[in-house]
Amino acid sequence: MSRIRRQSPPSYCHHKASGQAVVRLHGKDHYLGPYGSAKSHTEYARIIAEWRILQAEQKKQLASSPSSAEFKNLTIAEVMLRYREFASSYYSKNGIPTKEFVEMKHALRPLRELYGDTFARDFGPLKLKAIRQQMIEVNDLSRGVINNRVKRIKRFFKWAVGEELVPSSVSNALRDVDGLRRGRTSAREAPPVKPVEDIWVDLVLPHLSPQVAALVQVQRLTGCRPGEVVLLRACDIDRSGDVWIYEPQEHKNQWREQSRIIPLGPKAQAILNPYLVLPEKVLKIQFLRLFQGGRR
Score class of each variant (00 low, 15 high):
Ser8Met: 14
Pro9Asp: 06
Ser11Gln: 15
Tyr12Phe: 04
His14Leu: 06
His15Gln: 07
Ala17Asn: 05
Gly19Asp: 10
Ala21Met: 08
Val22Cys: 04
Val23Thr: 11
Val23Phe: 08
His26Leu: 12
Lys28His: 08
His30Cys: 13
Tyr31Ala: 05
Gly36Val: 06
Gly36Leu: 09
Ser40Ala: 11
Arg46Gly: 12
Arg46Pro: 11
Ile53Gly: 11
Glu57Lys: 14
Glu57Phe: 06
Glu57Ser: 11
Ser64His: 12
Val79Arg: 07
Met80Thr: 04
Leu81Arg: 12
Leu81His: 13
Arg82Pro: 10
Arg82Tyr: 11
Ala87Val: 07
Ser89Pro: 03
Tyr90Asn: 05
Gly95Ser: 02
Ile96Asn: 12
Ile96Tyr: 12
Pro97Ser: 00
Thr98His: 06
Thr98Ser: 09
Phe101Val: 09
His106Gln: 11
Ala107Met: 05
Glu113Arg: 15
Gly116Met: 02
Gly116Thr: 00
Gly116Asp: 00
Asp117Met: 03
Phe119Cys: 15
Phe119Gly: 15
Asp122Gly: 07
Phe123Asp: 01
Gly124Cys: 01
Gly124Phe: 01
Gly124Val: 06
Leu128Lys: 09
Gln133Ser: 10
Gln134Arg: 15
Met135Arg: 06
Met135Thr: 01
Ile136Tyr: 03
Val138Asp: 10
Asp140His: 14
Asp140Cys: 09
Leu141Pro: 14
Asn147Ala: 03
Asn148Asp: 15
Arg149Cys: 08
Val150Tyr: 02
Lys151Phe: 10
Lys154Trp: 04
Phe156Leu: 06
Trp159Glu: 05
Trp159Phe: 00
Ala160Met: 03
Ala160Ser: 09
Val161Met: 08
Val161Glu: 11
Leu165Glu: 05
Ala173Trp: 06
Val177Asp: 03
Leu180Asp: 02
Leu180His: 01
Arg181Leu: 00
Arg188His: 10
Pro192Gln: 08
Val193Ile: 15
Asp198Ser: 11
Val201Lys: 00
Val201Asp: 00
Leu203Tyr: 04
Leu203Thr: 06
Val204Met: 08
Leu205Val: 09
His207Tyr: 13
Leu215Phe: 11
Val216Asn: 13
Val216Arg: 14
Val218Lys: 02
Leu221Lys: 03
Leu221Asn: 01
Cys224His: 01
Pro226Phe: 08
Val229Asn: 01
Val230Thr: 00
Cys235Ala: 12
Arg239Glu: 05
Ser240His: 13
Asp242Phe: 09
Ile245Trp: 09
Ile245Tyr: 08
Trp255Gln: 14
Glu257Gln: 15
Glu257Arg: 15
Ser259Arg: 15
Ile262Thr: 04
Leu264Arg: 05
Gly265Tyr: 08
Pro266Gln: 09
Ala270Leu: 10
Ile271Pro: 02
Asn273Met: 13
Pro279Asp: 02
Val282Gly: 02
Leu283Pro: 07
Ile285Tyr: 12
Ile285Val: 14
Phe287Tyr: 03
Phe287Lys: 05
Arg289Ser: 14
Leu290His: 15
Phe291Ala: 05
Phe291Asp: 00
Gln292Val: 12
Gly293His: 10
Gly294Ser: 02
Gly294Ala: 10
Arg296Gln: 11
